[in-house]
Design a protein around this nucleic acid. Structure first.
Lengths: 235, 235
DNA sequence: AAATCGGTTCGGCGGCGGCCGAAGCGTCAC
DNA sequence: GTGACGCTTCGGCCGCCGCCGAACCGATTT
């Protein structure tokens, strides 16, 4: 019953990846090129974690997604956002009904969470990324793969902010890790040093929690310190 | 159990049209923008006529195909070749394995049939289309929808070639129809007048059959007549 | 009229695969 | 340690749909 392979098999196989609503939702949710954890994608597609896991592994195996482990999360992102996005748009454009531009996501714009938040015990969101960027720009940190190197001047700078760098060095945890930030798609500072910095900023009253959520906001004094010491202007 | 509709339904629904090998083959076979009858598409996809009919009706309902009845045939073609072809290529490009350019069709190039053939009782292929084009160019015929109008000068011209135009007018069949030519994707002359012209060309020895097949070729004398009377140069 | 042919419809079969709950594993918090 | 949490694997259910043969329809031929 088997026949010689038709030259269109690849087309059909690839199309079938996009042919189920749950997977299309997932890809659409990743269309902005940012990385998101599996649970969030499951929620977006309204499927169980188990089902999402299957879809994600299938999409990864097909080479559409890249995956990055981050603690107990797994972040997925499109391997080739340009190409994939174009394809999704072309498919949507072929559909008969809709004539206006699709509402697309919006779902993920939930900006309060995006601006600043804690990620386990370090700072994330726009704030966390801005901080990491600034420290790199000032020569305090340099990125090496998934880790940061802390320069001497960086150590001095952080110490002068009141961060207990020596204590962080002695911790059994990784000292300075680059953590993929899901809302900004860039790295922020994690590890013992990130924790120490985060602790210090709360302790000094430069940032504060919004109730008991993970949402964090910068206080006026924090804003001043960051501007003076790191040249960072945070909203 | 029903949930509010996700914005990705159109993407998935459209993708599922391309997600089955048989349909992908059909669309690929039509990728050149030409129209082909259902049976040929069934053969290309290696499925039964019944299955092909389902696929074709589904693709038509989805607005991907246009259909044109022609006698007892139904010719299908892509509604928007540009768009669809781009989509197919983008999908194929996403597939991991193939690195060289796809062999695409070639299948349909079977050129002997393409050059000239009879279609029921009139001339088709490159020859038929060239003839129809020439007669339009000479002002003998003008296309009106799916039919041709024969001008007075056209009637005289055909008569002078020995075609029995009056007999054709009295026939109960349609006098001069435009028949969609599958290999050239353009119209050729059908109907009673097309039949009369075809008869005359065989009778005069301007064209002859290749054995008992539908393949037809122009003889030297035919070539000369066509060049002199219609300004047509046929290979 | 009968035969042929292109195409569609119908009924039914069979398999792929999407989905979930439960269980398992690793990471992190307390 | 214990518990919570993110994620994956496993087993099984179930529905969708691609496929065909047979019957049917309409156009064309003889």
């Amino acid at each position: 019953m088997t026949r010689s392979p038709l030259p269109d098999a690849p087309v059909a196989r690839t199309a079938s990846l996009l042919a189920v609503p749950a997977r299309a939702t997932i890809l659409l949710a990743l269309a902005d090129g940012r990385a998101r954890p599996a649970t969030e994608l499951a929620r977006a597609a309204r499927i169980s974690a188990a089902t999402a896991s299957e879809h994600l592994s299938r999409l990864s195996r097909a080479g559409l997604l890249l995956v990055e482990r981050e603690g107990r999360h797994r972040y997925f992102r499109l391997r080739d956002p340009e190409h994939l996005t174009g394809l999704l748009e072309a498919l949507a454009a072929l559909a008969p009904a809709p004539r206006g531009p699709a509402p697309h996501d919006e779902v993920f714009a939930s900006s309060a969470l995006r601006r600043g938040r804690t990620c386990y015990r370090h700072l994330a969101g726009v704030l966390g990324v801005a901080l990491a960027d600034a420290m790199v720009r000032e020569g305090w940190l340099s990125l090496d793969g998934r880790f940061y190197d802390l320069s001497d001047s960086g150590a001095r700078g952080l110490e002068s902010l009141g961060v207990d760098v020596e204590m962080a060095r002695r911790a059994r945890r990784t000292f300075a890790r680059a953590c993929l930030d899901w809302s900004e798609r860039r790295y922020h500072l994690a590890g013992a040093l990130g924790g120490a910095l985060c602790d210090r900023m709360f302790e000094a009253g430069w940032v504060e929690r919004n109730g008991d959520s993970r949402i964090t906001r910068v206080t006026p004094s924090g804003r001043r310190v960051l501007r003076q010491r790191l040249g960072v202007e945070v909203w």
